[in-house]
C-alpha cells in the first residue's frame, strides 16, 4: 500500500525515475487516442442510439417487465457464478503461483482454455451433456429436472465462460510477489489462514479486485454461450444480452441500446466500488505501516 501510494504521489514530478514531460504527454496522448477510437467511439454510438428518442423513451425501455426479468436473471447468474469462480481463482492461483509440481503448465493452459472456445461450443457442450439427446438428458427428463433451456443451464454456461478470470488475474501477481513473505509468516508461527488473510490477501487485493470486476463484467455480458442454452423464452430465460438481441431484432433500436447501456453503466458502478476500496485501504494505511516495514526488509526476486 505504501509503495502504491508513493507512486501516485510521486507522479509527474521531475525525478530520476520518471520520464520527461514531453514524453509523458506523448504517451498519454497516444493511449488516450487509442481509447477514444476503440472504446469511447463505440460507447458514444451505444448511448447516442439509446437516447435518440429522449430520456423518457430510455426510461420506458428499461422499465419494461421483460427487461426487468432479464435484469433479475442476469444478477442471479452473476451472483452465483462470480463467487464460485472467485474461490476457485484464489485456490488455483495459490497452487500454481506458490508451488512447483509436475504438469503445472498443462494445468495453467487448461484454465486458459475456455477463453479460446467459441461461445457457441461453450453452450453446445452443456446441451450435449444435459440435452434430451445428450448423455444425461434422458435420465434427467425422467425426474423432470431441467438444466438446459432453464436457469441452471444459463448459470453453468456462465461459470464455464468466466471461470479463468480470477485465477488468470492473480497468477502473475502472486508470481511476481514471490514466496518469501508467506514463508516468513509461517516461520514466525502463523497458521495457514492467518498467513493468507494477513499477508497474501493484502498483497493480491488489486489483482483480486480486477479479476472479480472482469469476471463479473463478462458474466453479465456473455451472449453466445448463454444464447445456446437459454431457449429464449420471453420473460423467463432471457438475460440482459439476450433481451438486447430481441429488442434489436424487433427494430426497437432505442430500447435495445438502452438496455445495452445498462451494462455499460456497470463499468461506472465498478469504478465507484474501486474508489471505495481504494479509499478504505488508504484509511487503514497507518495500521499497515508496520507490515510494510516488515515487507521492505525482505528482498524480492528482482
Amino acid at each position: 500500500m505504501k509503495r502504491f501510494r508513493g507512486i501516485r504521489k510521486g507522479q509527474n514530478e521531475g525525478s530520476i525515475i520518471t520520464e520527461p514531460i514531453w514524453l509523458q504527454r506523448m504517451l498519454i496522448g497516444v493511449a488516450v487516442g487509442f481509447v477514444i477510437v476503440f472504446l469511447i467511439a463505440p460507447l458514444l454510438i451505444v448511448f447516442g442510439q439509446a437516447l435518440a428518442k429522449g430520456w423518457d423513451a430510455y426510461w420506458e425501455a428499461i422499465r419494461e417487465p421483460d427487461t426487468f426479468k432479464a435484469i433479475q436473471l442476469t444478477l442471479l447468474t452473476a451472483a452465483i457464478s462470480v463467487p464460485l469462480n472467485l474461490i476457485f481463482g484464489v485456490v488455483a492461483a495459490w497452487l500454481i503461483a506458490k508451488f512447483d509440481f509436475w504438469g503445472k503448465n498443462f494445468l495453467l493452459t487448461l484454465i486458459d482454455l475456455p477463453f479460446a472456445i467459441s461461445p457457441i461450443i461453450s453452450g453446445l457442450i452443456f446441451v450435449l451433456l444435459f440435452g434430451l439427446q445428450g448423455l444425461l438428458g434422458p435420465w434427467l427428463s425422467q425426474y423432470n429436472i431441467k438444466i438446459v433451456f432453464a436457469v441452471p443451464g444459463i448459470i453453468l454456461a456462465t461459470i464455464f465462460v468466466t471461470f479463468p478470470f480470477v485465477a488468470r488475474e492473480l497468477i502473475p501477481v502472486m508470481q511476481s510477489l514471490g514466496n518469501e513473505e508467506e514463508e516468513a509468516a509461517i516461520v514466525l508461527g502463523a497458521n495457514g489462514w492467518q498467513m493468507f488473510f494477513k499477508v497474501t490477501l493484502p498483497n493480491i487485493k488489486w489483482g483480486l479486485l480486477y479479476g472479480v470486476i472482469l469476471c463479473n463484467a463478462r458474466a453479465m455480458g456473455e451472449f453466445g454461450a448463454v444464447s445456446v442454452v437459454s431457449g429464449h423464452i420471453r420473460g423467463q430465460t432471457n438475460t440482459i444480452p439476450l433481451q438486447v438481441e430481441i429488442l434489436y431484432n424487433e427494430y426497437n433500436f432505442t430500447a435495445a441500446f438502452a438496455v445495452a447501456s445498462l451494462l455499460a453503466l456497470l463499468a461506472l458502478i465498478t469504478l465507484i466500488v474501486k474508489h471505495v476500496v481504494e479509499w478504505k485501504s488508504g484509511r487503514h494505511h497507518s495500521n499497515s505501516v508496520q507490515i510494510n516495514r516488515f515487507k521492505e526488509g525482505i528482498s524480492h526476486e528482482y
Binding site: L132, Q133, G137, K146, F149, G231, H232, I233, R234, G235
Partner: peptide
Amino acid sequence: IQQSHGGSGSQARAVIDGLE
C-alpha cells in the same frame, strides 16, 4: 402463452435438445 424466438434452425435444435 410463452414465446421464444430465434433463428429457425437454432430453435428447432433447441426443441430437439429438450426445450419443452
